[in-house]
Amino acid sequence: MAERQHRKLLKHKQNTIGYLFAFSWIVNLLVFVLFPIAFSAYLSFTRYDGVNPPKWLGLTNYKIMFTLDPSFWKAFGNTLYYMFGSVFLKVFISLILAVILNNARKGMGVFRTIFFLPVVLPVVPVMFLWMMLFNPNGLINRFLAFFGIPGPLWLNSPAWSKPALIMMSLWGVGGIIVIFLAALQDIPRNLYEAAQLDGANSVHIFFRITLPMLSPVILFCVVTGFISASQVFAEAYIMTGGGPLESTTFVNLKIYLLAFKQGDMGYASAMAWFMFLIMVPLTIVVFRVFRKWLTID
C-alpha cells in the first residue's frame, strides 16, 4: 500500500514539475496560438470580409474550392512540386557541408560564416540579386553558355520558374548547416575513437555513428523544412507575382492575396485548413519513413 501511495505521490510530483516547466508555453499556446487557430477554423465556415461579423455559410467555401476554383488545384500542385523539389536536396547538401565544416581546422570559421551569409542578408536585396542572376543574359546563363549549353529564360519561363526557385532555396542551406553543426557537437567523441580502433573507415563511421546520432535533428530539419516549403511565399510574391502563367502561384500566395488583397478571410481560411489536413498526414508519413531509414542498424 505504502509503496503504491508513494508511487502515486511521485507521479503527482513529476506531473507538477513537468507542468511548471512547460507552464509559459501552455499559456502562450492557449491564448496566442490555439485561440487564433480555432478562430480561423471557424472563419473557414463563414464569409468574413474583415470588417463585418462573420456570416455562417456551412461548407460553402470548401464546396467552392473543390468545384468552382481550378486555380486552387494548380497552386496546390505547384506547392507540392516545390516542397519535394527543395526539402530533401537542401537537407542532404546541408548535411554534407556541415560534416565538412565541422572541424576546428584553420579557416573553417570563415567558411562557416560565408555559407551562412544568405540567411543573414535582408530578403529584398537577395531576391533582387537572384533576379539578376536569372536574367537570360545573367551570370548563370553565361556560365552555361561557356559549356555550350543554351540557358532557359528561368523566372520568365513557365517550365523553368519552379526549378529556378528551388535552386534559389538551396542558397539558404546555411540555416540548416548551423543546426547540424551544433548537433555534431552532441556526439560523444569516444564513439568515434572506438570505431577508429575497430578499423572502420570514414564512410562507415558516417553511416554507423554520425547519421544515427544526428537523426533527431535531421528529422527536425525535414519536418520544419516541409512546413516552411509548404508555406513558400515571399519568393513568389516579390519575384514572380505568381507567374508566368501561374507556374509559381503557390497556395500560400493565394491565401495571402485572398485574405489581404481581396478581403476574403473565410475562403482563405478554408484553403489554409485544407493544407493543414493534407500536410499533417503527409509529414507523418515522411517522418516515419525517415526515422526508419536513419535508425537502421
Binding site: 533576379m131 536574367n135 537570360p136 528561368w154
Partner: peptide, 11 residues
Amino acid sequence: LQNFNAKYGWG
C-alpha cells in the same frame, strides 16, 4: 520580346 523583357526586368 520575352528575351528582351527578361533582360530589362528588375533593376
